[in-house]
Design a protein around this nucleic acid. Structure first.
Lengths: 190, 190, 190, 190
DNA sequence: AATGAATGAGGTTTCATTCAT
DNA sequence: TATGAATGAAACCTCATTCAT
């Protein structure tokens, strides 16, 4: 029993260790040898902990999503809409690097699966729902669609951070988004 | 003389033909043999027109960006901010499929290049600037950053279309974004 | 009839034009497209004059051997052994570049044929015999083996010119070889 | 520690195994699959030991040169010039097959590298110098050029063995060369 | 549990040759 | 005759995965 716990812990440790690698190079551009090297173990040992590269990646994505949701749930959920939006923004700014990488990896994940496969995967569906729920709970907007939409826009900003050399700062963009949301809420949800 | 024109035309035709393939499967998941088959030519012929898979992909991205910018420039640039935002939204909705694929391919493109390489590439810089300019001109907002930000958010929505099975309709999301922008403008730019 | 003559002349011209190319890069490192470009014609035209790359190469080797033999026969055949050896040396020095290239190409030629194939080829046998005869006639030594041996040693010096950065000058080496031959003849053939 | 030794030993073993293949067919005419087959391993395993076909070949050439020099140094260096020349001849005759192949491969090696590249390569320069030194030491002639020249002539005879079906025996040619050298030395170096 | 050498299918690319124009 | 686009077999090489140790 305790051994399994250790092993389980070790697996999570390994997943965390290759987070950056996938975020920087993308799934298809990273070889199993590179992963093993980054993890400081042999390829054989890697296959002892994960049945395949694909499964390793999937477990990484899964783990990240839990971390994200946990982070989102850690924010205080009281106060006005404007206050809650502000707090979300502050969280994103604080963990900018993490969220940018998460967005990159998530994109890669979808690229490497057929859509049918994704929609049939109950684990992924659940993860997706949990993101949605976390945002919904936090912002507590009248329309759940609106919460999802906010997350969509945030992802847009996160992608932009990776891709463009000309983008202005993440904090500035998150601020701007907050102001837009607040203006929208004041006008339409008053 | 006419031969060069034909050959150039044919190359563009070939690029258009593999647009969907890259959009659906991603750069690394498409083999040269698959591309050649999709194009209806032999791999040898493919290499007659493009020196490598990578260059083919780069030329595809380049071509798409020109098409996009041309589309953006085709919209009437007069009227109020709200009207212009509305027209941009209508264009995106009309060409939804195209713009979603473009976003996917663009993402893939960035994933398969080192950042340094991208920032050193004058062609890419120019393309990037042209996108920015096109949006700026169209929306004619007081702050150029704001225009870029709009494009960033639009890309977020486009990515969402690919990735999520639970997103609501593209048209609805674009509408929502328009309303947000209008609310923001009314409040801050009045 | 005159047309065939022209065509034949043109073919020889083409062979001469690609002499340097093969000498510098070797058979396997030269592509048909490079040859065609060097010849200033299309690959299609090239295949009009030569049925294959291999045959083109063989005809080149054949042509070179005739030129060499012709050169060797052009020397005056009278005087003492020492004089004849001297004259041969002067010829080699005068046409150094040509003979070096010839040696390189000849080597390449053998490398790209199975030995059995070479020994079965009557044309090649004849060429080989003609070289031997030309040297024999020129040096007029008591033992025909000796003449062949001289040619063998000359080829060694020619190869050295290509391969080594440290070799001393071709003229010096040919001189040294002449002195050796003369010393040998004085001692053994007196 | 012992593992590295084994691996290093195995690499040398692999090099020795493909010596004949390159000698018979030449670099460009041997495919990686053929090499792997000859070595009795998969292409993947081959690439585990050598980063490319070219590097494999270079390491083979390097290895051969060391073996040659070692052989040359193994001869007794005392006695008269005639005796030393005789001993060198006997060594060449004894290892005829090896030296012929070495000459062939060395030629091929030069053909597949740009001259500039060869002259810039310190390893190759050193190898070249070592050949020279070994011959110089062995023959102990008054002029170092003369020693190099002897090696040049020997190579000529070695090439002849490969190329010509009409050459007389290697032993006979080496004998003849010895007599020439001796005659030359008696006349000029007395 | 751990290692890393080994596998071999499959990737990108090349190139001698053909053929419609 | 001449062109050069097109072919496709085959080249070199990679890499996820396995397995003897």
């Amino acid at each position: 029993m305790p051994k399994i716990v250790d092993s389980e812990e070790y697996r999570k440790e390994l997943l965390d260790k290759c987070f950056d690698l996938f975020a920087n190079k993308g799934y298809a551009n990273v070889t199993t040898r590179q992963i093993a090297k980054e993890l400081g173990i042999s390829t054989g040992a890697m296959y002892h902990y994960f049945p395949s590269k694909q499964v390793l990646f999937e477990q990484l994505v899964d783990r990240i999503s839990w971390q994200d949701v946990k982070l989102l749930k850690s924010i205080a959920h009281d106060g006005t809409i404007a206050e809650r939006i502000y707090r979300l923004g502050q969280l994103l700014i604080e963990y900018e690097e993490h969220f940018v990488k998460q967005a990159v990896i998530w994109t890669d994940f979808y690229h490497h699966h057929a859509l049918a496969e994704i929609n049939d995967n109950p684990v992924l569906q659940q993860v997706d729902r949990r993101y949605q729920e976390a945002i919904e709970e936090l912002l507590d907007l009248p329309d759940p669609k609106l919460a999802r939409f906010v997350w969509t826009l945030i992802n847009g900003i996160l992608f932009e951070q990776v891709e463009s050399a000309y983008s202005f700062s993440f904090a500035e963009q998150i601020d701007l988004l907050s102001q837009m949301l607040i203006a929208y809420c004041e006008k339409h949800l008053a």
